[in-house]
Amino acid sequence: MSRLRSHHRNIAWLVAVLFWALAFSSGTGASGKSYSLEATPVAEGVWVVVGSTDNFSKANGGNILNTGFIETGEGVVVIDTGPSRRYGEEFRALIESHTSEPIVKVLITHHHPDHAFGSQAFEPNTLYMLDESASLLEQDGEAFSDNMYRMIGDWMRGTEVTVPMNRVQPGLLSLGNRQLRLIAMQGHTGADLVVLDETSGALFASDMVFFNRALTTPQTPGVALWRSEIRQLAQLPFSLVVPGHGPVIRDDRAFLQMIDYLTWLDDVLAGSAARGLSASEVIDTAIPERFSEVEGARYELVRTVSHLYADYEKRALNRH
């Protein structure tokens, strides 16, 4: 009997120790991981934090995207928060080391986890998103989160889906000495925010534009719509383009590559459907030499076939 009681006491101690360990380890940085973020100035008062063009992995912790921030004289506007709470916290510290202005607006361009999962690190009343994007994040956030834990593991520690409390409207946003043009598009996810800093000409195209990195299609309403919106972006008075993934560029090459790539994808899918090819055959399609610099093209083709090919196939068949 007394033996049993001491057994219980031991368990109680064990539980207490576990809780204590958990409480301390859930603080950030506990495992010593760091994204080592660096801010690159691209225009007066405009910085970009450039990520790699790889896939999500436990090596890169999901730092595969570009984020940015803009000084306005009346506070900082932040564009996207990164893939995890840890990224968000490091990003916020980085911003605060470059400017003494307070962070007044954090614009989340779309609901994908690599862009929206660092939001916990920022004040809730500074977070903004398009209305439709917020609905998509409500709907898909938990599934994205599960997948992120699977893909990047411990980097996700403490990350919870955070839907911004404020909504952003397309149009002009004047703040301090800046005039920002906020544009709502649909090509990548159905609700994509693009930010043009009219003062410097910096265009934060987010995932509407991938450069030297294969574009991703899980939620696209269609490649034809996406392509027409790229043509609209190309008409804007920009001096530099910050793609969602890939290097910053000061001419229209990213747009030309996007149009070329989307046209190729559309042709491959429609042409394969017209020949009666199975999805397994389409994923083996040769990738043209001119896309040799586009990172991840084969991998993304496999995904795109899964997302879009069934619709092309059904259009090529006759109903009985």
């Binding site: 899980p218 397994s280 994923i283 899964s306 069934a310």
Partner: peptide, 11 residues
């Protein structure tokens, strides 16, 4: 494919 983008529909 090397990976299933959609576990309910793998070609």
């Amino acid at each position: 494919p090397d990976f299933a983008e959609d576990s309910t529909q793998v070609p």
